[in-house]
């Protein structure tokens, strides 16, 4: 699903975020990327969903070399990747339903089809009853589940999560992880960046440790 070959990425302010990174994540895999702050986890994920470009090397997503992607082709890459952030990035003036439906409309899905898909994904994350609620009335765990629903609504084969439990307590974090496990069982490749080792142990999945822009363990 994801293959990195000799990827180098330099921070704008100097120093390397990633150095000679080689990585293969097969389709349907669940993998943790761990490491301390500044290890390059977020940069790695940003490269995978095209928010940043490599300085050197190649990245293949589903067999497609995204380092040669034209700017106009970037939206099509992103439609195949769901992204979840630590701070949820929900729109406060839209309801739960609209936060997700908005993303469907943004890629031109007809209104009726968008409604159907949003209900289905809200059911999956267990928030169908709160569809008309605004994010500020939800708990952190519920907000993160909305963000996951939004990432999943386009039915992407790849789900990326950058510190998705960073703002959640242990119980909520485990709920979110259980949801990721369920999503992974539906053949979605899941990549989670975290510095929380207890979650890695809880999930008992493959983990790869990054340090100073290099894989130090778990290749």
């Amino acid at each position: 699903m994801i293959r990195l070959i000799g990827v180098w990425k330099r921070y704008e302010e100097g120093g390397f975020a990633l150095q000679e990174m080689n990585l293969h994540i097969p389709r349907g895999e669940f993998i943790f990327i761990t490491g301390p702050s500044g290890a390059g986890k977020t940069t790695l994920l940003s490269l995978i969903y095209g928010a940043e470009s490599v300085d050197r090397g190649q990245i293949f997503i589903a067999g497609r070399n995204i380092t040669r992607l034209l700017r106009k082709d970037l939206p099509h890459l992103r439609r195949g990747i769901g992204v979840v952030f630590q701070d949820f990035k929900l729109l406060p003036r839209r309801t739960v339903f609209d936060n997700i439906a908005f993303c469907q409309r943004a890629i031109g899905v007809p209104a009726r089809e968008a409604r159907r898909r949003v209900y289905a994904v809200l059911k999956l994350v267990g928030l169908a009853a709160k569809r008309n609620t605004f994010p500020r009335f939800l708990s952190g765990g519920e907000q993160q589940r909305v963000a996951i629903a939004r990432a999943l609504v386009n039915r992407p084969p790849l789900l990326i999560a950058d510190e998705p439990t960073g703002n959640l307590d242990q119980t909520m974090a485990r709920e979110v992880m259980d949801l990721f496990r369920a999503i992974n069982r539906m053949a979605t490749t899941v990549v989670v960046a975290t510095h929380d080792h207890s979650l890695v142990e809880y999930m008992a999945k493959r983990a790869m440790r990054l340090e100073n822009g290099r894989i130090s363990d778990g290749r």
């Binding site: 939206p75 195949g80 943004a106």
Partner: peptide
Amino acid sequence: EDIAIMHLVGATD
């Protein structure tokens, strides 16, 4: 924020 999310989910320019 809306625009950033639109970019993220693959909306075209």
